[in-house]
Design a protein around this nucleic acid. Structure first.
Length: 514
RNA sequence: CGGGCUGUGGCUCAGCUUGGCUAGAGCGCCACGUUCGGGACGUGGAGGCCGUGGGUUCAAAUCCCACCAGCCCGACCA
């Protein structure tokens, strides 16, 4: 209270004080989600779900544009299906929720229990991912090369019994999309996996305003059962890396497991080549960690549930009717405009709270633009406009028509600003490292007790040795995020592994990850 | 799943070591009043199975045990 407002932050602690706690406080202050009574499972509240709906709608249209169709497959997978692909079941066995009964009854102790008489002959696994069950369906659909490719996407929930949940980033149940495709040739399947990774990278950059590196995972980081795992990696504000999306070339592994066979052009029985690719509600966590600040959420306009909030200022009761009328008129005018191929989403905040409370509420929620309209504005023909990418108190008064006319441009500019800001942080913290000492120094906090934000991405030489990879992970908690494709970081100049000194064909991207 | 910390009204916490009065505070909430381009102020008020279940005791928020949940550090992962 005694503190001047310009030094006070809406979120405590700040990012630099305690990043992890800050992250959780932002989610709460923005009213996006909360923990539920079920371990590791969250309730996504309307403001958070609205973000997901936008992500969903926009990605979905990109999938459709690349020839994919949506379908829906069962939540339950027969246990035997998972067993069909050896490394797949091995990869997921530790985190499967299993359904063993189909009825409850009253036990001898008077408590409800799974009825012993109602045990399933074969347990059902709650899907951790759907390769196997979708594969078994595709197997039925495909008879000849003329039935290929099959290009399917599903929007669904999946369950992975994670040991350490973290809201939005790693929840036991999460929402995602999973694309599953089957192709006639190896080349075509690889092309598909690469193309979908490109869709993700484009979406991250243009819609989420998150710069990403893309590349291939090393063998140790590969999806269980995949031949090749491609990924996009983002750097968030504590300079850690987040895998924001993955696309897998599955070779014929799952086709063999699910018997996806077809008669080829030459009349031979052949196995199809499959891919799978997905992004999840983790994207929301990534957006938060990338863009939010010490006053709360900062939303990239394209995925904001509301682009503009109109705050009626009603200093005297007599003004109420005329101010609300003017606000509604302005709302209608703005709603008729479009931004990024969608109508501008605008709402009038009619809640009976003081202006300051409402203003701060929207700051914390991260709405891109706030517009105030009050009696003085009506008289002068002006409105006051605030932008979330500028200081909380910075507002400018402008004629209504002028403001309305440049809303699209402002949203566009904000979207670009957020991207540029995030890219600057990432680029400043992506460094080429050529010695073991520098590498260890880069990834070691100066204060071990209370580690400060440090490190980032390191581009360094690695010979391909899994042993070296494991050692780095063990000693520094640093992993190879990917072997990058991006021209700005890709470096195929041969060198020597910074740890072992063995010959290295190229640099790879190292980082600490979520 | 291993180690550590925590669990008291919507939120942040005090009380627990040394068991015993109607379990407190700030913020938030409700009412009234004063304010009002503004995260206001005053007065009054509502709201608590003290995470859950057992145990010890004349008596448990407080001691013991088990379980559940959250956070942090590991191992695992989108």
């Amino acid at each position: 209270m005694a503190e001047p407002s310009n030094t006070k932050t809406a979120i405590t602690p700040t990012r630099s004080e305690d990043f992890s706690e800050w992250y959780q406080q932002v989610i709460r202050a923005a009213d996006m989600a909360e923990n539920s009574d079920v371990r590791g499972c969250m309730v996504i509240k309307p403001w958070g779900y609205g973000i997901w709906e936008n992500i969903q709608a926009q990605l979905d249209s990109m999938f459709k544009a690349t020839g994919h169709k949506n379908a829906y497959f069962p939540l339950f997978i027969p246990l035997s299906y998972l067993e069909k692909e050896a490394s797949h079941v091995q990869g997921f066995a530790k985190e499967c929720a299993v359904v063993t009964h189909h009825r409850l009854d009253l036990g001898p102790d008077g408590k409800m229990r799974p009825a012993p008489s109602a045990e399933l002959a074969e347990p059902l696994v709650v899907r951790p991912t759907s390769e196997t069950i979708i594969g078994s369906a595709i197997a039925k659909w495909v008879e000849s090369y003329r039935d290929l490719p099959v290009l399917i996407n599903q929007w669904a929930n999946v369950v992975r019994w994670e040991m350490r949940p973290r809201i939005f980033l790693r929840t036991t149940e999460f929402l995602w999309q999973e694309g599953h495709t089957a192709h006639e040739t190896r080349e075509e399947a690889i092309e598909e996996a690469v193309a979908m990774l490109e869709v993700y990278a484009t979406f991250a950059r243009n819609h989420l305003a998150i710069p990403v590196y893309h590349g291939e995972k090393t063998e140790s980081e590969r999806f269980p059962g995949a031949v090749q795992t491609l990924c996009i990696e983002a750097m968030v504000q504590d300079r850690k890396s987040i895998q924001a999306g993955t696309s897998h070339f599955l070779g014929q592994n799952f086709a063999k497991a699910s018997e996806i066979k077809f008669v080829s052009r030459t009349g031979a029985q052949e196995y199809a080549w499959t891919t799978s690719w997905g992004v999840s509600t983790r994207l929301i966590g990534t957006v938060i960690m990338t863009h939010a600040d010490d006053d709360g959420m900062v939303l990239p306009p394209r995925i904001a549930p509301s682009h503009v909030v109109i705050l009626p200022v009603i200093p005297k009761e007599e003004a109420r009717v005329s101010v609300l009328e003017a606000a509604d008129k302005l709302r209608a005018e703005i709603a008729s405009l479009r931004y990024a191929d969608e109508p501008i989403r605008v709402e009038v905040d009619r809640r009976d709270f003081s202006g300051g409370v409402k203003n701060w509420d929207w700051i914390k929620r991260g709405v891109p633009i706030r517009i105030e309209i009050g009696p003085r504005d009506i008289a002068s023909g002006n409105v006051a406009i605030y932008r979330r990418d500028q200081p909380a108190k910075a507002k400018t008064f402008e004629p209504v028509a002028e403001t309305v006319a440049k809303l699209q441009a402002i949203l566009d500019e904000m979207q670009t600003n957020l991207y540029e800001r995030a890219k600057l942080l990432r680029d400043l913290n992506t460094v080429r490292i050529d010695s073991k000492a520098d590498f260890y120094d880069f990834f070691t906090p100066r204060n071990e007790e209370k580690p400060e934000i440090h490190g980032g991405f390191a581009l360094a030489h690695w010979s391909g040795s899994a042993e070296v990879e494991a050692r780095i992970k063990d000693e520094l908690k640093v992993t190879i995020r990917c072997i990058p494709f991006d021209p700005e970081v890709r470096d195929d100049e041969p060198g020597r592994c910074i740890i072992s000194g063995e010959p290295s064909p190229r640099r790879v991207l190292f980082g600490k990850s979520y």
